[in-house]
Design a protein around this nucleic acid. Sequence first.
DNA 1: CAAGAATTTAAACATTTGTTTAAAAAAACC
DNA 2: GGTTTTTTTAAACAAATGTTTAAATTCTTG
Lengths: 213, 213
Amino acid sequence: MKKSMDCSVLPSKSTEERIREAAKRVFLEKGFDGATSRDIADAAGINIALTNYYFRSKEKLFISIFEEMIQLFFNGMVDIMNKPISLREKIAELIRHDFQLMKENPSLSLFVMNEVHRNPERMVNSIGVMKQIHHSMFEEQLQQEVKQGTVRAINAIHLLPMIFCNIQFLFIGKAMHMKMWQMDEAGFDKFADNHKQLVIDMITNYLFEFEKV
Amino acid sequence: MKKSMDCSVLPSKSTEERIREAAKRVFLEKGFDGATSRDIADAAGINIALTNYYFRSKEKLFISIFEEMIQLFFNGMVDIMNKPISLREKIAELIRHDFQLMKENPSLSLFVMNEVHRNPERMVNSIGVMKQIHHSMFEEQLQQEVKQGTVRAINAIHLLPMIFCNIQFLFIGKAMHMKMWQMDEAGFDKFADNHKQLVIDMITNYLFEFEKV
DNA sequence: CAAGAATTTAAACATTTGTTTAAAAAAACC
DNA sequence: GGTTTTTTTAAACAAATGTTTAAATTCTTG
């Protein structure tokens, strides 16, 4: 049942990995309901029985991909939240990171939102990642600077959506925005890039430039 | 084929309307791919053949619902954009309207984003609504106030996403936010309501309170 | 009321879907 | 090299899905 245990040789791109990569592409594009086992097999260029040979079921394969996407979605974010840098720089970096993540995975956010909406129980397995957000240094750093008067009084639960909504909304609605403003891919890229800087300006402006007491 | 043409009596809730209402609920909750004809028939409490008797196909029924949702999504927005009120008040009203719309239709935004992403061609039939946004008074009012120096220099294509992303992102990610911050429905309502006011403050602050030349 | 039209129903239809089987091919092992 | 194990394949499976049929029921209308 198990494949070779010899770890001294680099495992040439295995069938399992090719299935994962194809499944990632297809699930991200079409969602769990819209993707068929045959879609994934075709995208991977393998026989349809192999998906179940390696992953036992479409559901199990999906969960494996979904959890990888949840990690991708949150891990970089948490890393930055724990960095020993000023709040101002931290927020700018969070936005820049989110932009880069969305640029490299344009349908990631829509995929996550959608699948969590359809089946919230799927997130229970990924509760650890979310705990990390609660236990990060972000909220206490924020409240510390609030106390010092260097930042406007606000809670992390309100600030974090403010930070992430702008970029993610752009990509969640990428198809709609492109239709609405008649942009092609290059046009959207330029638009999104400009928007990123505006958003950093707006949020830092709001947070740090205010009538201090 | 046609039902009674007598318009003098109010048409008791017709089967067609019951199907539409059920389809609306099911499609909004599960999307086109996730919803089955039998789901809709069950939700409407009617025989499964009736959906095709009245709408010819699942696709045609969906398109009918989708276009209604596009109208719901954009119409109120366009109305406010054309109101003869100050930009400051207009933006606040747009956000309040968006909040009310999302509160009454929590999965509307995710539904629209998702279905447009899956099949952008579906929006071509709804191009009229989007043209209305271009031809609204919003951009010219904005640029007029920019010229007067009462508002920060920005284009509508950047400002509009800024206005709508905050509230919509909250509801697009409602399930995720509820899991992440361990909120129940009532908790989320209160959270969203607080957030609305913060967002109005942030955006108007950014736009109108700046180092004027 | 009776004839015709519209609506509703149960059943069936052909495809598609996720999954399994059993045999073939390839790889690993002694 | 021959045996065993692992991987891959074609074919089939049952269940689900969108759709249609044809009969039954209800409504309309003269």
